[in-house]
Computed example of a mutant assay.
Amino acid sequence: MSRCLTFLVAVLLISPVAAGERVSQADALTLSQAAVGVRLPDLSFVDTEGRRVRLSDYQGRPLLISMLYTGCTSICPTLIDSLRPSVAAAQEALGEDSFHVVTIGFDSGNDTPARLRSFARLHEAELPNWSFLAGDQETLDRLAEAVGFTFFAAAGTFEHMAQVSVVDQQGQLYQQVYGGTFPPPAIVEPLKDLVLGRRHPLASLEGIADRIRLFCTIYNPRTGRYYFNYSLIIGLVIGAGSLVLILTVLLREQRRTLAQARREP
């Protein structure tokens, strides 16, 4: 088993973080989890068209951040091939414009905009609102530290964490998703919470509609897609109607009892 594959299976390997420190598996996981809740710095990158973009450009919608290197021939392609259908499922369930995705090459010497563009095209990851970004090493190290991502050079290649970071609408790290593959629920569920659970206040009509979509949008493992389960909303309506009927009967009975008590001498 290759060192990179061993790292993937274990999720984390005893390894230095980007800044050069050596940490244990437990410490590496602690570093990753400690990043949850951190507001990301407004770092600058270059997209595959050569345009300068900043992380702040993606605020206002949830953001998925993944890091890889284009020279990888095993794990990184597997990760992106797994992430692609999950992103597509999320876009279908929540809307293409409801969130952003950025994949960033951490090998600054080789992950140029052109190579990232070719990598995205090769793996059919050219979905709406999915950007592949390049950066200088200082910027990449700052991002890796901010999102708790561990990577290091080893024998002419890289070992790294298998991680997708979920960032909320305000640029704050909301959740980490780990693994060699990313099935749709692992990606869609945190996005559902951010898109439908926080977009509108519950007191508004939009907020109520979003909460209904949040609880009634269900994953079908046989098809690998999400769908709106009308039976759940019908059940909620029937349950609410039954509760209103019971309360009405109880209220009428209480009023009848009080009226009878007043008539008695």
Rank of each mutant, 00 (worst) to 15 (best):
S2I: 09
T6E: 14
F7L: 08
V9K: 15
V9Q: 11
L12Q: 10
P16S: 12
P16Y: 14
V17Y: 15
V17D: 13
A18F: 12
G20H: 13
R22P: 03
V23F: 14
A28W: 05
L29A: 09
L29V: 05
L31V: 11
A34G: 00
A35E: 07
V36Y: 07
R39C: 03
P41K: 07
P41S: 04
F45Y: 12
V46A: 03
D47K: 10
G50K: 08
R52A: 15
R54T: 10
R54Y: 11
G60W: 10
R61W: 01
L64E: 01
M67A: 07
C72P: 09
C72N: 05
C72R: 15
C76T: 05
T78F: 13
I80H: 12
D81R: 15
D81G: 11
A90S: 05
F99R: 00
H100K: 14
F106N: 01
S108N: 12
N110W: 09
R115W: 15
R117T: 02
F119M: 07
R121W: 12
A125V: 05
N129K: 14
S131M: 11
G135C: 00
G135S: 09
D136G: 04
E138R: 13
L140M: 06
D141N: 13
A144N: 04
F151L: 01
F151P: 00
F151D: 03
F152K: 04
A153V: 13
A154G: 01
A154K: 15
F158N: 00
E159S: 06
Q163S: 04
V164P: 04
S165F: 04
V166C: 11
D168Q: 06
Q170G: 05
V177L: 13
V177K: 06
V177W: 12
G179E: 06
P183L: 11
P183V: 04
P183T: 02
A186C: 03
D193L: 03
D193H: 12
G197W: 14
H200R: 01
H200V: 00
A203G: 07
L205S: 11
L205M: 03
E206L: 13
C216F: 12
T217G: 04
N220Y: 11
R222W: 08
T223Q: 06
G224F: 14
Y227Q: 00
Y230I: 06
I233H: 08
I233N: 02
I234T: 10
G241F: 15
S242P: 01
V244F: 13
R255G: 04
R256S: 02
T257G: 07
A261C: 05
